[in-house]
Amino acid sequence: MEPFKTHRGKVAVLDWTDVNTDLIIPARYLKRVERVGYGPLLFADKRYVPGGAPEADDPDKHGPEAPDFPLNRPAAKGATVLVVRKNFGCGSSREHAVWAVAQAGFRAVIAPVKGEGFADIFEGNAYGNGLLPLELPEGEWEAIAEAGRSEQGAEVTIDLEALKLTLHSSSGEKTFAIEVPEAQRHRLLNGLDAIAETLLDEPAISAHEAKAPAWITPQPA
């Protein structure tokens, strides 16, 4: 996993509440065998013109973007920070939802109110895939969302080492404190996924292998 230390990027604001995983990625795309290629499938039934959603077997083949979908606004083009409302990612447990958000280029999702921003499973899956789910107090969230909705849009810098978020907008800069559970912060800072963490125990794994009896390894005759 790519480490997350500081990140500066444009925000895209999706002003909807209770966005469920079926909206994030419709069920028909779960038959795919890949773990990549989910980026174009994010909000597949909303972000393209009617009838323009991608084919399951060829996500890159899709119709033109729907101009009225918030993520398609010119100011949100190339955004890497998604600003959403409460209870984002509710519904099924599909990890595909997080794959879609992350592979569409987002590194963080910002929702209002501690403990209410994200559905539990989505939040867990997000950390597991190096996508930072941030919950901010209502007022601070609104400041970011408002700047993001403006004509010129806005950027934020998330400093995970200093636990600070800075909003850069036409009306200047504002800095807020952020909270991230320590274990998750440690993983993100060091780019550790579950596998990378286990690999820190490499010496113990090798030691186990060294003392395994010879007969235990399959011997193709």
Partner: peptide
């Protein structure tokens, strides 16, 4: 298995013990 192999590719990892 398909997504598991894709995960390995994404992280540029190998199969530790192809013999097992």
């Amino acid at each position: 298995s398909p997504q598991a192999f894709d995960g390995l590719r994404l992280a540029r990892r190998k199969v530790r013990r192809p013999d097992l």
